[in-house]
Design a protein around this nucleic acid. Structure first.
Length: 482
RNA sequence: GGCCCCGUGGUCAAGCGGCCUAAGACACCGCCCUUUCACGGCGGUAACCCGGGUUCGAGUCCCGGCGGGGUCACCA
């Protein structure tokens, strides 16, 4: 059995779309699972779209996620170069070979003419298909035009009758009427190959055995097969992947800021969580396991369990999964990762980040939501005294008016402001006041946080705030209550 | 519009003719834990797009409808 070789062939746009990351992932997983090779090829034939540093985005994303390629632009390999623009002189001979075989032909119709004919067809309510006008040119006519230096393209000569079919690993048997096939351009007038053509040549030359790509190529695959057949090359296994959707009718899009890998990393998602979640949109292991390391994914991956219906990217579930990953983080690692987010609102304040981190770790789903949760530590929010009311804790505004003044001297009396001391000192007083714990602690926490819910209870918050600030806030709240 | 693909709860999904009065997970709701929230534990609501077939038997196979997506470039 020959070695499995898969490839990920992105064009460098400067961004990595999540759908692309998933395509790369599946290609990687399958290659590794089969003990084969994962190849990275940069498809940059469109010079107009060139973006500075765009290939680095691809490299960094893949490497960051642990998808290391066996062959590619930077690591080399036996079938290079792996950047399409560096292979541009390689395609024309193949196109000419096809012309000689009668599988392709020169076409001298200008873009302008075609546009016109397309418009006419549209006006008649028809689907425009190249009419093979130039196929009728005699060898001499073609040569004459060539000699005259007329610009030309080379088109694939598609059959017009019968049907083409192939078997896709995820979609099964697919067939198309040949009458729908358009004679696609192989070589452009500028001498560059079209994406479709270069793709087939490169895949073959690089020995790709399994082509895994988005399902938007489902309907152009018959034409790819025509090329393989014309050359007498072996057709690879096709594995078309469904689209990752934002909702039932929309793809993940740039516009909504929910399409790029970098968007998510910037928002504070862990790449491990993102990869783990992405792997599960469109594929499942057939077991109830849903947490996977990259190695576990490789082990569990099976192309036959790829789904054939599009999946919606559920940010909700991603958030949950991310929070699970965060909880499992080593506390020191969490502290290190959370600190920049703490700094956003607490810079300059004297706060025990280590303790804050302990309190926040189980309350963090994505890092970017940390600031809003701890902003009250930096500045006392303006709050509605109605929140002193809590039925279960037997607290209300009146209870707060009664309890806060008692609490103040007790707090002021604490010399060593440790969490344990605050806890023990206050708890020791409560029985004497004839109150339930909640009736004291609820007002206390509200008084110093101004929020109904906080990360941590009254003692933790008081400790974090420090003695002076705690006292100051208790006083301010007493004043507010009148 | 032609052609192609898809159609199980709000979402991801298991299911490959009888084990389905249909798993599991997220979300949601309730209870427990608890000085709030979160975490954790327990429980609950909720689905086979519709209509015809085939079959002793259909979520599972076939056809049609409907719905959604994709594709129809000298873009990739």
């Amino acid at each position: 059995m020959t070695e499995v070789r898969t490839r990920f062939a992105p064009s460098p746009t400067g961004f990595m779309h999540l759908g692309g990351v998933r395509t790369a992932l599946y290609n990687y997983l399958f290659a590794k699972k089969m003990g084969g090779k994962f190849i990275l090829r940069i498809e940059d034939t469109d010079q107009e779209r060139y973006v500075e540093g765009a290939t680095d985005v691809i490299y960094d994303t893949l490497k960051g996620c642990g998808m290391n390629w066996d062959e590619g632009p930077d690591v080399g390999g036996d079938w290079g170069p792996y950047v399409q623009s560096e292979r541009k002189n390689l395609y024309m001979p193949y196109a000419k070979q096809l012309v000689e075989k009668g599988a392709a032909y020169y076409c001298f119709c200008t873009e302008c003419e075609l546009k016109e004919r397309r418009a006419q067809a549209e006006a008649r309510g028809e689907v425009f298909k190249y009419d093979k006008k130039c196929l009728g040119l005699s060898k001499e006519e073609v040569q004459a035009k060539l000699d005259a230096g007329l610009p030309y393209v080379i088109r694939l000569n598609c059959p017009t009758e019968g049907e083409s079919s192939y078997d896709d690993v995820v979609f099964g048997h697919i067939s198309f009427p040949n009458s729908d096939l358009d004679d696609m351009v192989l070589m452009k007038a500028d001498g560059m190959p079209t994406y479709n053509f270069a793709n087939v040549i490169d895949d073959h030359l690089m020995g790709i055995t399994h082509v895994m790509r988005g399902m938007e190529y489902l309907s152009s695959t018959p034409k790819y097969n025509l090329l393989y057949n014309a050359f007498g090359w072996e057709i690879p296994q096709y594995i078309h992947l469904t689209t990752v959707m934002r909702d039932a009718t929309h793809k993940l899009s740039k516009r909504d800021g929910d399409a790029y890998y970098s968007d998510f990393i910037g928002k504070g998602y862990l790449k491990e969580a993102l990869i783990n979640y992405l792997a599960l949109v469109g594929w499942n292991p057939g077991t109830d396991q849903e947490f996977f390391t990259m190695d576990e994914l490789i082990d569990a991956f099976d192309i036959h369990r790829l789904n054939n219906s599009p999946g919606i990217f559920d940010v909700n579930k991603l958030d949950w999964m991310n929070s699970q990953y965060i909880q499992k983080l080593d506390p020191d690692k969490y502290l290190a990762m959370a600190t920049p987010w703490f700094e956003k609102v607490l810079a300059g304040k004297n706060i025990d980040y280590r303790r804050l981190a302990q309190l926040m770790q189980s309350r963090t789903d994505i890092f970017s939501r940390i600031p809003e949760k701890i902003a009250f530590l930096a500045q006392m929010p303006d709050y509605d005294t109605a929140i002193f009311f809590n039925k279960k804790q037997k607290s209300d505004v009146d209870v707060a008016r009664e309890v806060l003044p008692k609490l103040l001297p007790v707090l002021e009396g604490i010399q060593d402001w440790t969490e344990a001391n605050i806890h023990d000192t206050v708890m020791a007083q409560i029985p004497a006041w004839g109150k339930k714990n909640g009736a004291v602690l609820w007002p206390m926490r509200i008084a110093i946080s101004g929020q109904e819910s906080t990360p941590g209870g009254a003692f933790e918050i008081a400790y974090l705030l420090g003695k002076d600030e705690t006292i100051r806030r208790i006083r301010a709240s007493m004043e507010k209550l009148g």
